[in-house]
Design a protein around this nucleic acid. Sequence first.
DNA 1: AGTCATCTTAACGATTTTTTGACGATTTTT
DNA 2: AAAAATCGTCAAAAAATCGTTAAGATGACT
Lengths: 235, 235
Amino acid sequence: MKIKDKVLIVEDEQSISNFISMILQASGFDTIVVRTGEEALTMVSSHCPDLIILDLGLPDMDGMEVLKSVRKWSNLPVVVVSARNHEHDKVEALDYGADDYLVKPFGTSELLARIRTAIRHTRTALPNGEIAQSGKFTTGELTIDYDKHQVLLRGENARLTVNEYKIVALLGKYAGKVLTYDFIIRELWGPKAKTDNQILRVNMANIRRKIEKNPGQPEYIFTEVGVGYRMREDD
Amino acid sequence: MKIKDKVLIVEDEQSISNFISMILQASGFDTIVVRTGEEALTMVSSHCPDLIILDLGLPDMDGMEVLKSVRKWSNLPVVVVSARNHEHDKVEALDYGADDYLVKPFGTSELLARIRTAIRHTRTALPNGEIAQSGKFTTGELTIDYDKHQVLLRGENARLTVNEYKIVALLGKYAGKVLTYDFIIRELWGPKAKTDNQILRVNMANIRRKIEKNPGQPEYIFTEVGVGYRMREDD
DNA sequence: AGTCATCTTAACGATTTTTTGACGATTTTT
DNA sequence: AAAAATCGTCAAAAAATCGTTAAGATGACT
């Protein structure tokens, strides 16, 4: 029994959103339609869609802002749809983490194909299957709860900030392997971020202060000098 | 020392392939250019590129066939580039596993952004960011753990420095074969480094102090006088 | 407006790592 | 046999790395 994929459609023109919604439903998707950026953000966190179709021209805020907000804590696939055909817009959206950019007007079968492609990416991308990688990772007294977006120490919430959590979550996902500074930075701040690990250093200091007994001699996250960080393997 | 991403360009029109190649190189990619589908397939298996830019109009075979062949055993990102703007073509390519479809003519910055996006997709899958090599190499009581970036002696971390590790890792990769001083130096310090093996000598002394019982009579890394170093074969 | 938490950037120092110069033992070449 | 080159070793200088602190910058919420 296959569960239908949920698609969140963010589009202010009702004629278009209705049309897209119909097409998608006919193709076996569940759809949620919202008109504003704000609704979109609440829907994303409350309904956990499998994909977002995002129009850039929204009444209350720039679609790009929606994209950025979503990307702060999730990398679920976002297909941007816009009337703007300027290269600059495309580049910006893609570099902020959009998975595709379609210019209106577009054909329905192309839209569907691109949606399939975007969903396929997340499916094959993460070996464990999900965007927010569901489940838990545990090593020693440390637990990463991927559902709650929390890191627990002896069952207690370590109260990491969003970025701190993302770093730990990433390291936990590849526990036992060294992740280079560059890789972590790319993953968190996008492909055109500075390749300066300064920011990682202070984040790591803060993380360790929260999860390590003795930050000077870490028990969970080790630094491989000149290379990157590595999380202790699970047990 | 970051390793550049390799992009395989499959395109029969030389003017276009040259152009793309230039753009990519200027953006920090290594490029390989081929004209036919057959060449493309051999290059994919022999050179392991990080991404393929695939033109659909090839002299010897349909680009779609290339795509299908590649997808049989690999899901490395493929960006299709084509003059055909028919929806049917796009859908077909995307459904056969292409990661994106660009219609000629396209802007260079859009191409680059879409390449970044495609690479990003695979990166979240496997953090190959740096020194590709994965797994372990073992000979005698010595183990090179390529995931942890560590060299272990009887299970104990030998605590090599980055450069020391890189040298051992390189020798391990070609265990049994002599690597010339020049080659090792090139590999570590880039093509324009001094061709003076002084620096290798002191590194080797330090390495041996850490991994050999009797540095005077090495058990793992041998020096071929006048030529280079060689690591003992695995067992 | 103001508070609060977080994110970002700059600067500093302790430590580690890299590089360089020098010397002698040994081997190779002349 | 003498001269030259090769290689390992030591020590010291030079450079880089990383954790840490503190000071702005930003944004959310009251």
